[in-house]
Design a protein around this nucleic acid. Structure first.
Lengths: 123, 123
DNA sequence: GCGACGTAGGTGCACCATACACATACCGGG
DNA sequence: CCCGGTATGTGTATGGTGCACCTACGTCGC
């Protein structure tokens, strides 16, 4: 607009990938490549596979998920991930945090709209 | 619960500080130390002053805000910040992004609750 | 046979926001 | 005179994220 047109880094929540993966795994056992396709529906556009696999392995080591190799007749083997009880607990906690964030964003929106109205009235 | 009690990094949106500061400045001219007190109301608990002042100066250099030193009779001088037109534009854009994020979080919540219900029913 | 393509998983690395610690300066009160 | 509250900063480590790149398997087409 003004010339600068600075790139506006929108910004998803920090560590948003983990909650998303846990939710998807709560909906059913899956593997990395498939999860990659399902992530955009949760607001995660252009996820890099590297980070995804790293995240899955980290959660595996922490006991939030359980992994198992599943040989495939067509194509390379898949590593399937399953949510553990601890992972389900974690999901519950993080869902609460996201709900709190959602409330903060609602507050933000309310105050933003009020400030816009005040600005419009002043013109 | 299980013993680990892993620290859950909740995670506010990336670059959330900027939108918050711009909103607060849209509500009225202010200075750093005062903004520091107003941030918790927008979900930002325990903000470090360093980052705050850095952020304000960065936005000043980018032309999103305008700063002016205001001498004080009691206590040190204050640097007051005022929103520019460009900053208001930026605020509008970023508010849209946050609204989009809010929608993603709503989707997340819906799917989470459905997955919980399915899990309860299975027991 | 062989290269190209889609599937599937993985490593290395640089960047940048954030977090934490610490420094400076002004003023008033005990 | 030191201390606490106000107010603004600097230095630096950490860690999530993004980008580039790599391996391996199977299949289709030439």
């Amino acid at each position: 607009m003004t010339g600068g047109a600075e790139e506006v880094p929108v910004g998803l929540p920090r560590n948003y990938l983990r909650p998303c993966l846990l939710l998807l795994l709560a909906e059913g056992t899956s593997h990395g490549y498939e999860l990659l396709d399902q992530l955009p529906a949760l607001g995660m556009h252009r996820v890099d596979p590297g980070g995804l696999y790293r995240c899955l392995r980290a959660m595996d080591q922490e006991g939030l998920v359980r992994s198992a190799w599943e040989p495939s007749t067509s194509g390379p083997a898949r590593r399937t991930y399953e949510l553990t009880d601890e992972g389900r607990e974690w999901l519950h906690v993080v869902a609460g945090s996201l709900a709190e964030l959602s409330r903060s964003l609602a507050t933000y929106r309310r105050r933003y709209q009020r400030s816009v109205q005040r600005h419009e009235r002043r013109r």
